[in-house]
Design a binder for these strands. Structure first.
Length: 577
DNA sequence: GCCGTTTTCGGCCCGACTGTTTTCAGTCG
């Protein structure tokens, strides 16, 4: 049976082939929109079809519904087969080379018979491209360079790398040029887990000086383009950085526009057109009258739409809610009263108990759970039961000394391969709070891994599952899980799932958080700090929670300790009984 | 190919930069 992904891939290939054949771009877009819908579905298409609800999916009409049915029934689509005969997959692949779009790929295919990136590279090396109309030596050289770049570059840059680089650019430009406002836009501002490039917006009295300064940034490997308002450079680590200078009165318009997402903007502009308004990066207009654009709010207000924060702008319903006048009410850093996952140098942390608690206190937290590793984490100096008890005594002593923060004696206990926890129950019973997580056997089957977590959730002592999928963005895949089953069990047992703030983890991710809220699973946002400065990572966890539409009420550690402790105790008693 | 509190037909977001053009097409975001 064809999966949702299979159907989406066929639609995407059709879109590319139609683009190559010079078809109506809106028809092309219809296939891409449909693919996007399919990729976001929770449920198999076959189920939706069985219920006769294909037509209720956004972007699916009579024609595409019939094509989905054909693919589900036969595993293929005649239209797709025919298109692939006319345009071999390699021809579409040439469009992945930057600077080669559908028209160029079509010309290369028709005039030179090129059917793959390899053949394109060969032809460029032999100087055969410049014979074509509209091609020159420079185009040829660019294509070669871009093919080389395509081969070496990492497809997406994890937020963990992109965010610090963007901050660096901002600091360096402030120092090197007369910059007034400067802000990162793009997917970085929306805090997606990885980004394609870095977009920086600037206002300045001397745009030319800013553009020049960008080309001279210390990490610039190559200047890709530079004009009076936009400069694109490639960093040494192959990250593209785009810097745009805009007039101060347009800053809000540009920020809104370049923050996106593309889908959010398309919908917004479509609504604007219906109201006789026009949006661009230069403002919002009725005819020739400019209604605003200095701030982002000015871009939404004339449309009668409440502005939602950048993390929400993914066209997941935020525009409709803003239009209906429902104000945004999402979790912010200031709502968090405590951190429930913190390490010390007793296991693999870098700082002492006292130093970590002090850092948490300075941050404004009124409680903090110290959760070092259990014995199974030998390489992280996991605590024996005796050391864990000694730490608990140390915590009680410190609690008598400190007045404005309370320390919880906790542990991040390993979930063993079989789903049992890495301390005996009598030890777990002594803890104020118990987190558990998977640090081993990442490649069990979906069934085994699901059973493993379900068994852990059954433990009467478990309060929180930390970084539930174990994924590392761009490095390690999440463990295979039937997330819906795990979450249903977690909701039933009132076990919370963590949103881990490490930018490499962001685990749960936004899609899981949306599902957790739907299923009524309690959530916590933790830093998993291993050093005092790691509390700064909280912003990534909070942003991810917002991407999952989490409100303060969804997040357990927004409540005061006086409410949290009884809840933990009650839960433990209920589960033991 | 989709879609509708302007429309069941005629819309579907818009501007900057590049290269090769002597006025603009193609690509990108």
């Amino acid at each position: 049976m064809a999966t949702n992904y299979d159907v989406a891939r066929i639609f995407l290939e059709i879109a590319e082939a139609l683009e190559l054949s010079g078809q109506d771009p809106y028809r092309v877009r219809a296939y891409r929109n449909a693919a996007r819908t399919l990729l976001s579905l929770e449920e198999p298409l076959a189920e939706i079809r069985r219920r006769g609800e294909l037509l209720s999916l956004p972007g699916i009409g009579e024609s595409l519904a019939a094509k989905i049915a054909e693919i589900l029934d036969s595993g293929r689509l005649r239209q797709h087969d025919e298109l692939m005969e006319h345009f071999p997959p390699g021809v579409a692949a040439m469009m992945h080379v930057p600077g080669v779009g559908p028209r160029t790929a079509q010309t290369l295919f028709r005039e030179l018979g090129l059917t793959s990136v390899e053949e394109l590279e060969h032809a460029a090396r032999e100087g055969r491209l410049r014979a074509l109309k509209g091609f020159g030596a420079k185009t040829e050289a660019n294509i070669l360079q871009n093919i080389a770049r395509l081969r070496t570059r990492r497809q997406r840059i994890p937020l963990a790398r992109a965010y610090p680089l963007a901050q660096q650019v901002i600091h360096l430009l402030r120092a090197a040029a007369p910059v007034r406002d400067i802000e990162a836009a793009g997917s970085l501002r929306r805090m997606t887990e990885d980004v394609g490039d870095i977009d920086i917006l600037v206002t300045s009295d001397d745009p030319a000086a800013v553009m020049a300064a960008v080309t001279r940034l210390p990490f610039v490997q190559r200047v890709l383009a530079t004009g009076p308002t936009k400069t694109s450079v490639l960093s040494e680590q192959d990250v593209q950085v785009d810097v745009r200078v805009v007039a101060p009165e347009n800053f809000g318009a540009a920020l809104q526009y370049f923050t996106g997402s593309k889908e959010h903007n398309v919908k917004l502009r479509t609504l604007a057109v219906r109201q006789g308004l026009k949006l661009s990066e230069y403002g919002i207009f009725r005819g020739d009258t400019r209604l605003g654009g200095a701030t982002e709010e000015e871009m939404y207000r004339p449309l009668g739409i409440l502005m939602y924060p950048p993390e929400l702008r993914e066209d997941r319903g935020e525009i409709e809610r803003g239009l209906a006048g429902v104000p945004p009410d999402f979790v912010e850093e200031r709502h968090l009263r405590g951190d429930l996952h913190v390490h010390t140098n007793a296991s693999d942390g870098r700082a002492s108990l006292r130093a970590m608690v002090e850092a948490a206190r300075e941050r404004g937290f009124t409680y903090v759970a110290i959760s070092d590793h259990s014995p199974a984490r030998g390489n992280a100096r996991g605590l024996s039961a005796a050391r864990l008890r000694a730490q608990a005594r140390e915590i009680r002593a410190l609690n008598r000394e400190l007045t404005d923060i309370t320390i919880l004696a906790a542990s991040e206990v390993d979930i063993r391969r079989d789903g049992t926890l890495d301390y005996p129950d009598d030890v777990l019973a002594e803890l104020d709070l118990c987190l558990a997580s998977v640090h081993s056997a990442f490649n069990l089957s979906r069934e085994e891994q699901t059973a493993r977590l379900l068994r852990a959730i059954d433990s009467p002592f478990l309060d929180i599952i930390a970084h539930p999928t174990g994924r590392l963005v761009g490095t390690r895949d999440p463990i295979e899980l039937d997330m819906r089953r795990v979450m249903t069990a977690a909701a039933a047992h009132e076990v919370a799932l963590e949103i881990n703030s490490w930018p490499e983890r962001l685990d749960l991710n936004d899609a899981h958080i949306l599902l957790a809220r739907e299923l009524g699973v309690p959530l916590v946002i933790d830093t998993d700090a291993h050093a005092p400065e790691h509390f700064d990572n909280l912003k990534f966890g909070v942003a991810t929670a917002r991407r999952g539409w989490a409100t303060p009420a969804d997040i357990l550690n927004t409540i005061p300790l006086s409410q949290l402790l009884p809840r933990l105790r009650r839960n433990r008693l209920r589960k033991a009984a």
